[in-house]
Structures are given as structure tokens and as C-alpha cells.
Amino acid sequence: MAVQPSTTIVPEEVPDSSLGTSRAVHLFFRNPMAWVGIIGIVLIVLFSFVGPLFYHVSPLATNVTDLLAPPSAHHLLGTDDLGRDYLSRMMYGGRLSLIVGFSAAIASMIIGVTYGLISGLVGGWLDNFLMRVIDILLSIPTLFLLLFLDVTFQPSPLELIFVLAITSWFGVTRLVRSEVLSIKQRDYVEASRAFGANNFHIMIKELLPNVMGTVMVATTFQIAGAIITIATLSFLGLGLPPPEPNWGTMLSDSMSYMYENTWWLIYPPGIALLWTVLSINFISEALRGAIDSRF
């Protein structure tokens, strides 16, 4: 056996999807972890997107007479150093963090899955070439690259989604490719080919449904990763630009007042982030359980 350079992913046998899918769905929803995760995500989405409809306080309105006020009936989560209502900032901050995180993850999945499908299916010199490109890209220290891009370009949210997406799809590609390599040997793919199906048809109709399980698990990882990365960058003062709030920036702003015991500034953004990532990871765990136990 030869060493597969830096890949330890052994493609599992993928069962025929027709029966397996409904079983996996059933198993997923029977897992309490799935429900914990789903409820967690629903709550945070409601908080960020529906909350502002009921809580009519601007996240940007400053008030010099009410700086660093602790939580009260007037400001449920207190105010920040510019007298802005913190609960409102938490809600709007959630919007931006979630939208950017989800979009970046979806975009990187689209690139990664397409690349992996093509590389695995076509094979030969093209596969060789495409995988060498991945090896090169993987040797780039991502955080250093992101740091650099952010310092120099100061991206808008849309550009940030793009940057996050193009720096995070390599792992997905490898996963998808290694699965495709085993699936494309199956009889049903051969049969489809014998009926005159072209590569595109095989990719969409035969391969994609069969890598869907892996893709879904990988998507949850990507979403959690993107939300953390965007928060980290914003925490470092890069990433999403002010004055629109986001959890990462709010956390780093609150650090300036650490010695003044302003706990209401420090804990909420951190807990909200942990809550979100934890919920996604619960779903991820349940998904993995459901898909693995099909065999």
C-alpha cells in the first residue's frame, strides 16, 4: 500500500440512496441532539431577525448621558461606551454574523463540491493536475492570508464572503473526490454510461445524490468554521467594518473596559457565538450519526 499524501480519508462504502435516505432522515430526527441543535439555531435566528421587529431600539443611536450603563428596565442589556443599546446591537450583530457565515459556507461548498466531482469523475491527468493545485493551496497559511487581505483591502461584507469562501473549500473537495472515486466504479454508474449519459448527467443524477450525506455534514462544519473565522477577524479589528455591529467586534470593543467590571459587554457576544456554534455542532453530530449508521 502506498502512502496517500496527507489524505487519511478512506472512502466508505456508500449504500444505494433510495432506501438509505429515508432511514437517515428518520434516524436524524430521532436523535435528541438534532432537536437541541435545531431549537438552538431557530432561537438564535428568531433573536437576530425577528427580535428587532419587537424591540424598536436603534443599534446605532448614541446617547452621551447613558454611557456604559448596566442592564436596567430601560436598556435590557445595558449600553456600550457610546451609549448604544446593547441588546439591539446583539440582535443586529447576529444578523450580520449569521448571514456572512452561512453565505460563505454555501459558496465554499459550491466551489468545493463542483471541483471534487469534476476531478474525481474525469480522472486521469486532469485529476492529477487539479489535486496538485489543491496541495499548493493547502500549504498557504489561511489565517495569515486572510489577515493580510483584510488589512489591505478592508472588505465589504460581500467581499468578505467571497474571501472566506475561496480560502476554505479545499478540504471539501478532497472529501468529495475520494467518495466519487469509489462511487464511479459502481454498476449503476456504468449502466447509466452504457445508456449514453454524458459526464454532466452522471455528475448530477448519479454522483451528487450519493455524496449528499458527506456534503451535508461538511456543510455544517463549514458554517461553524465560517462563523468562527468571521468573528475572529472582526475581533482582531478586521473583517466586518463598523459602525454596524457584529459579535466579534463587540467582543473586542468590550475588552477595553475589562477592568471596569462591565460584564454585560463581554459575556453576551461570546455566549451568543458559543450558542450558535454549539447548535450547529449538535446538528452536525446528529447528521453524522444518522449517515454512518446506515451501514
Binding site: A231, G248, L251, G270, V277
Partner: peptide, 22 residues
Amino acid sequence: TFFLWSMPVFWLGVLFVMIFAV
């Protein structure tokens, strides 16, 4: 470990500064 796994590094860092230094 599930909690730690979901914890952004910088948030853990901030917590540690808060608790053990401040």
C-alpha cells in the same frame, strides 16, 4: 470537549484574561 470544540479560540482567551488576570 464538545463545548471546548465549539468555543472560538479568542473567546476562550478573553475569558481566561477576564477570570485569571483581571
